[in-house]
Design a protein around this nucleic acid. Structure first.
Lengths: 117, 117
DNA sequence: ATGGCTGTATTATGGCACTGATGCACCTCG
DNA sequence: CGAGGTGCATCAGTGCCATAATACAGCCAT
């Protein structure tokens, strides 16, 4: 009945980007470690190498990973914390207001739902 | 730095749909009232009449509005409540889990933020 | 009845995002 | 030097979205 913002119809490269960002924040890819190669991650995720590269692109633009041509991409020192605070700030500024007002309209209270799931 | 789910890059017909749904729930378009004509809303929103029609389409598919050819589209009785509960259920099932886990990862607590904004 | 308002169907077109296949430039290691 | 691993650029294909120009079908007040 609704087709709002299901992660299903999101572009693959954005889903990958989120997934990688989460992995960096959670320390799955520790600082200084090498990220999976575009081909490796593409094979693992059943995606196209180019799509993975596009997901990686944003991280190097933001200086969160360092590229060594012919070698691989490495997580920069302090990337996890920088990424977390940047995402937190963006979330609060761009997403939370809409989410909050929508929940209010639907008769939901964030404080209560926090406990449930 | 982030390009997550800003309502900005959403298709126009979906943004209109959300906006109309909110208006119905909030009683801006009370039950039994006539919705703005496709041409009127299109002019007001600077959109194409066909795009507005596409937004309206979903509501008649769901039986929330009644079409009187040559007259207009009217909000069905009980539409507001049906719409709210349907959206609430969809939100809790499809969106909230992701939002909740993401907030946790970012070190945010819904219960605290609920008070702020 | 007629003009003016409704929603709707048709067809065409331009733009843009996403995905994909291929090939090249670069580095490391044996 | 050469094989195999990197990332990356280029080109092409596909599909959705939005717009546009008409035209049609129905209702209603004047």
């Amino acid at each position: 009945m609704n087709a709002n913002r299901p992660s299903s119809n999101r572009p693959v490269y954005l889903k990958l980007r989120d997934q990688i960002a989460a992995a960096i924040i959670d320390g799955v890819y520790p600082e200084g470690a090498m990220l999976p190669s575009v081909r490796a991650l593409a094979a693992e995720q059943g995606a196209n190498p180019l799509t993975v590269a596009k997901a990686y692109q944003q991280f190097q633009n933001d200086g969160l990973v360092e590229v060594q041509r012919g070698v691989g991409m490495y997580v920069v020192r302090g990337a996890a914390e920088r990424l977390r605070s940047a995402e937190r700030e963006a979330f609060l500024r761009e997403e939370w207001p809409e989410i909050r007002s929508r929940m209010t309209r639907l008769g939901l209270d964030p404080a209560n739902l926090a406990v449930i799931s």
